[in-house]
Design a protein around this nucleic acid. Structure first.
Length: 280
DNA sequence: TCCCAGGCAAGGC
DNA sequence: GCCTTGCATGGG
């Protein structure tokens, strides 16, 4: 796979390890969509549109190509990751199906808010809540609404979040956003190792073990974590024939098995387990 | 009506 | 420490 950066676009060729569905509709990001055959994605204060020109050749139009080179993690060699994971026979159907999956490098604050909302929630409603948050508190751009800064979203109240459908998570959001605004955590978290960052995240309201692992994986680029939600719990029981019921211990089992590739592995398995549920 | 959704906080032990 | 319970909300 090769890419070329222009001033208003990225040209992606021989894309064996990238599909719009695999990166956008795999449950790691929520503000995206598809119109006709063009996919759109908004992250932070950036938007891109992805079109397939010919099979495995894409054009990504955006005002900020450098942001999206990092965002889509085009400098990471997924062939290497896939060849390491293919040694585990149990993973092969998921790896074949999820050829186009990649782990996105998303803005930290947006990931924290998104995954607090994700707790015991379904993906369409998470998408709806996040879009309403952006429309109410994000900067208006020619292409839509940016995700709000921590300062802007600290003006949102519990009843604002309730109005956006965040339910009982609303007070958690207000508390955590206020703490992020009044501390140096958002700057310090990227400098911490996995264990210390996890401890710091678990002190935030609305952040438990699973949400912390999602933030570590999607917002901090830590790949030695394995978020266990209801779907991965199914994978564990049905495909790995596991008997453990405690989700923390299930996560520990997966990390001890897949080590530094755990995060990638988890995303392929999640995407494969939900393959009959389309998000678009 | 009941069950489920990328679980967490709080309380009991 | 581990285990149970209640929880907003919309969709199937």
């Amino acid at each position: 796979m090769e890419y070329k950066v222009d001033k208003d676009k990225i040209i992606l060729t021989n894309a064996d390890t990238f599909t719009p569905e695999g990166v956008l509709a795999s449950g790691q990001v929520f503000r995206f969509g598809k119109e006709n055959d063009t996919w759109w994605i908004i992250s932070g204060d950036n938007r891109a549109e992805i079109s397939e020109i010919t099979p495995k050749n894409y054009i990504i139009r955006t005002q900020n190509p450098n942001f999206f080179v990092k965002y889509f993690d085009f400098d990471t060699n997924y062939d290497m990751i896939l060849s390491r994971l293919r040694k585990f026979e149990v993973l092969r159907p998921a790896l074949d199906y999820g050829r186009g999956v990649r782990l996105l490098r998303q803005p930290l604050f947006e990931v924290i808010v998104s995954f607090i909302i994700s707790a015991n929630n379904n993906i369409p409603r998470i998408q709806s809540s996040l879009n309403k948050i952006a429309e109410a508190f994000g900067e208006r751009r020619p292409w839509g609404y940016a995700f709000p800064s921590v300062e802007a979203l600290s003006r949102a109240t519990v009843s604002d979040f309730a109005r956006f459908g965040c339910g009982y998570r609303s007070p958690y959001l207000v508390d955590t956003i206020s703490r992020l605004k009044d501390s140096a955590l958002l700057a310090e978290l990227p400098t911490m190792d996995t264990a210390n960052a996890r401890k710091a995240l678990l002190n935030l309201k609305g952040v438990g073990p699973k949400v912390a692992d999602c933030i570590l994986l999607f917002g901090l680029g830590k790949y030695d974590v394995f978020p266990v939600d209801t779907w991965i719990d199914k994978v564990y029981r049905e495909d790995f024939r596991g008997t453990e019921t405690n989700r923390q211990r299930i996560a520990d089992y997966f990390v001890s098995t897949f080590k530094a590739d755990s995060g990638y592995c988890q995303q392929y398995l999640f995407y494969y387990k939900r393959k009959n549920i389309t998000l678009i």
